[in-house]
Amino acid sequence: MLGDNYSISWRVLDAQYWGVPQRRKRIFLVADFNGRSASEMFLSQRACEGILRRAKKRGKELPEILQKVLEKQAISA
Protein backbone atom coordinates (compact mmCIF):
# COMPACT_ATOMS: atom_id res chain seq x y z
CA MET A 1 0.00 0.00 0.00
CA LEU A 2 1.48 3.33 -1.05
CA GLY A 3 0.55 6.84 -0.01
CA ASP A 4 2.11 10.27 0.06
CA ASN A 5 5.57 9.64 1.56
CA TYR A 6 4.66 6.35 3.22
CA SER A 7 4.23 2.68 2.43
CA ILE A 8 2.83 -0.30 4.31
CA SER A 9 3.46 -3.97 3.65
CA TRP A 10 2.08 -7.05 5.37
CA ARG A 11 2.61 -10.79 5.48
CA VAL A 12 0.89 -13.68 7.21
CA LEU A 13 3.46 -15.86 8.98
CA ASP A 14 3.02 -18.93 11.15
CA ALA A 15 4.20 -18.25 14.71
CA GLN A 16 5.71 -21.75 15.06
CA TYR A 17 8.56 -20.75 12.75
CA TRP A 18 9.50 -17.75 14.88
CA GLY A 19 10.34 -19.45 18.17
CA VAL A 20 6.81 -19.53 19.59
CA PRO A 21 5.42 -22.93 20.68
CA GLN A 22 2.16 -22.36 18.81
CA ARG A 23 0.79 -23.08 15.37
CA ARG A 24 -0.95 -19.80 14.80
CA LYS A 25 -0.84 -17.53 11.84
CA ARG A 26 -0.02 -13.92 12.63
CA ILE A 27 -0.13 -10.80 10.52
CA PHE A 28 3.11 -8.81 10.48
CA LEU A 29 3.00 -5.21 9.35
CA VAL A 30 5.90 -3.04 8.26
CA ALA A 31 5.40 0.68 7.74
CA ASP A 32 7.87 3.11 6.18
CA PHE A 33 6.83 6.66 6.99
CA ASN A 34 9.82 8.19 5.23
CA GLY A 35 9.47 6.62 1.82
CA ARG A 36 8.15 3.75 -0.21
CA SER A 37 10.29 0.77 0.77
CA ALA A 38 8.16 -1.17 3.29
CA SER A 39 7.80 -4.14 0.92
CA GLU A 40 11.59 -4.47 0.75
CA MET A 41 11.69 -5.27 4.48
CA PHE A 42 10.38 -8.82 3.92
CA LEU A 43 12.61 -11.45 2.39
CA SER A 44 11.45 -12.67 -0.99
CA GLN A 45 11.33 -16.32 -2.00
CA ARG A 46 14.44 -15.79 -4.11
CA ALA A 47 16.33 -14.12 -1.25
CA CYS A 48 15.53 -17.02 1.11
CA GLU A 49 16.64 -19.56 -1.48
CA GLY A 50 19.89 -17.64 -1.98
CA ILE A 51 20.66 -17.54 1.75
CA LEU A 52 20.06 -21.28 2.06
CA ARG A 53 22.14 -22.04 -1.05
CA ARG A 54 25.09 -19.91 0.10
CA ALA A 55 25.06 -21.40 3.60
CA LYS A 56 25.09 -24.92 2.18
CA LYS A 57 27.86 -24.07 -0.31
CA ARG A 58 30.03 -22.64 2.48
CA GLY A 59 29.31 -25.54 4.82
CA LYS A 60 27.64 -23.24 7.35
CA GLU A 61 25.01 -24.63 9.67
CA LEU A 62 22.24 -22.12 10.30
CA PRO A 63 20.40 -22.00 13.63
CA GLU A 64 17.49 -24.45 13.49
CA ILE A 65 14.75 -21.82 13.73
CA LEU A 66 16.35 -19.67 11.03
CA GLN A 67 16.73 -22.71 8.77
CA LYS A 68 13.04 -23.59 9.19
CA VAL A 69 11.87 -20.04 8.57
CA LEU A 70 13.97 -19.65 5.43
CA GLU A 71 12.82 -23.01 4.07
CA LYS A 72 9.17 -22.20 4.75
CA GLN A 73 9.45 -18.74 3.17
CA ALA A 74 11.34 -20.16 0.19
CA ILE A 75 8.49 -22.47 -0.76
CA SER A 76 5.50 -20.33 0.25
CA ALA A 77 6.43 -16.87 -0.96
Rank of each mutant, 00 (worst) to 15 (best):
K68Q: 14
A38H: 05
S37T: 12
S37F: 05
R54K: 14
C48L: 05
E49A: 11
A38L: 02
Y17T: 02
R53V: 02
K60S: 11
L62W: 04
V12T: 14
R58I: 02
K25T: 11
K25A: 11
G19V: 02
S9P: 01
K68S: 11
K68L: 13
D14M: 04
K25S: 13
V12K: 09
Q67M: 13
K25Y: 07
S39G: 05
R54A: 09
L66E: 09
E64R: 14
I65Y: 08
D32S: 01
N34C: 10
V20N: 06
A55C: 08
L62R: 05
I51G: 07
L62Q: 03
F28H: 13
R24I: 04
L52H: 05
F33T: 08
L29E: 05
S37V: 06
G35Y: 02
L13I: 09
R36Y: 15
P63K: 05
L43K: 05
Q67K: 14
L29C: 01
R46A: 15
S39C: 04
G59K: 04
L43C: 10
C48E: 08
I51E: 02
P21V: 00
R11T: 03
A55Y: 05
A15L: 12
E40Y: 11
V20E: 15
F28I: 14
D32Q: 07
V69N: 03
M41W: 11
D14T: 05
C48R: 04
I65W: 08
R23M: 10
I27K: 13
R23A: 12
I65F: 11
A38D: 01
Q16I: 07
V69F: 00
R11E: 10
R24W: 00
L43V: 08
F33I: 10
R24H: 07
Q45G: 13
K68C: 04
R36C: 01
F33E: 00
A47T: 14
E61Q: 15
E64S: 12
W18E: 04
A31W: 01
I51D: 03
A47L: 10
L29S: 01
Q22S: 11
R11D: 03
S39D: 08
R46Q: 12
A15V: 08
A15P: 04
F42I: 04
F33R: 11
S9D: 08
D14S: 06
R53D: 00
D32T: 03
P63L: 06
C48M: 07
R24V: 04
K60H: 14
E40Q: 14
A38V: 05
R46G: 08
Q45A: 14
V69Y: 01
A31M: 13
R23P: 00
F28L: 12
Y17G: 12
V30M: 09
R54Q: 13
C48S: 12
K68Y: 09
W10M: 13
R24E: 00
A15E: 10
R11S: 02
A31C: 11
V30F: 07
I51F: 09
Q67H: 14
N34G: 15
Y17K: 01
G35A: 07
E64F: 10
G19A: 02
E64V: 12
L52W: 03
K68I: 01
A38E: 03
S44F: 01
Q22D: 07
D14C: 07
A47N: 09
S9I: 04
L43G: 06
S44L: 03
G19H: 07
G19K: 04
